[in-house]
Amino acid sequence: MSLTRTDATWVGPLALLLATGGLLGIATNLAKLAGEAGLDPLAFLAWSIVGATVVLLGVGTVRDRLPSLDARTVEYFVVSGLIGVAVPNLLFFAAVPRVGAAFVALAVAFPPLFTYLGALLLRMERFQTSRAAGVALALGGAVLLAALKLSEPDAEPFWVAATLTAPVLLAGGNIYRTARWPAGATPDELAPGMLATSGLMLLGLGAISGVVGGAGRFTLAVPTANLEPTLLILAQAATFSVMYLLYFGLQKRGGPVYLSLLGSVGAVVGVPVAVFLLGETPPQGLGVGGLLIAMGVALVTLGGPKGD
């Protein structure tokens, strides 16, 4: 693709990618602040998603764009909510206190290779050398940072592994949402449906944990000694509201592989926030890894949103 192409089809998807990735980086750091405020990862994630669902359903009601409920859309909401939101985000949020917000932000940059390979196998993308090279560079930067994290003396292998499992689920969600996109549905109809089902799943998990485990490993309780936990939930709900609305727009216009790069953008935002504002130690290899990720995003962007 020539850089002088006049239709500029990449401008809209690139703007969506930068905005969505930036919000993702903010969301990761809000999870760290929530942990420091005494909020359980499940409570923070569940109530934030419930709040975002209420906002998007309210907007949909005003615009008369509520999601339809039939067998196809219900399946879409359940599967995408499970593997694209509920499970990976719970893994990420639970891992933040153990591995740090900076590492979790970097781990969200992992899905491109898995998404690209899946898209090629399903013929949703055609092979393009520059695009493949971009995905490989972005993944290479992320792998370097992960390997250096594991080499640290105080590393917790279980939580590092849990953090690295979530991107595989996200990649599956990227592929699924494109392959099973309901005919005629718009992003602002699908986003609240996916969030609603993932919120119900998380609330159900909290209820089961409370019954089966007593105090349980997870809880939906929100500390009320001060306003900080509630304010953090409201901030995350607002972040999720905008992020997931843009998320589906990016999925529609850019395709699954381009969408998967939002984690790389999120890392560019999330890591500096974690280091400079939250006082975390910079991950080893940040300079080299960050450069590889940035080069990868550039190559995939210049290759066209859908590898055209």
Score class of each variant (00 low, 15 high):
135 V>R: 04
137 L>H: 09
138 A>N: 01
142 A>R: 02
148 L>I: 03
152 E>W: 14
153 P>W: 11
155 A>M: 04
157 P>D: 09
157 P>S: 10
161 A>C: 07
161 A>Q: 02
164 L>D: 04
168 V>A: 10
168 V>T: 13
171 A>E: 02
172 G>V: 02
174 N>R: 03
174 N>V: 01
175 I>F: 15
177 R>K: 14
177 R>V: 11
178 T>M: 02
179 A>W: 13
180 R>P: 12
183 A>L: 04
184 G>V: 09
185 A>W: 10
185 A>C: 06
186 T>F: 04
186 T>H: 05
187 P>T: 07
189 E>A: 15
190 L>R: 05
190 L>E: 10
191 A>K: 03
194 M>C: 11
196 A>L: 15
196 A>S: 14
201 M>P: 09
206 G>F: 02
207 A>P: 03
207 A>F: 13
210 G>N: 08
211 V>L: 12
212 V>F: 14
216 G>N: 05
216 G>L: 06
217 R>E: 15
218 F>P: 01
218 F>S: 08
220 L>K: 00
221 A>Q: 10
221 A>L: 13
225 A>R: 06
225 A>F: 08
227 L>M: 11
228 E>S: 08
230 T>G: 12
231 L>Q: 02
235 A>N: 01
236 Q>I: 10
237 A>G: 05
241 S>E: 01
241 S>I: 03
242 V>D: 00
243 M>N: 01
243 M>R: 07
244 Y>M: 10
246 L>C: 00
246 L>Q: 11
247 Y>V: 08
250 L>D: 09
252 K>F: 09
258 Y>S: 07
259 L>T: 13
262 L>V: 13
263 G>S: 11
263 G>L: 01
265 V>L: 01
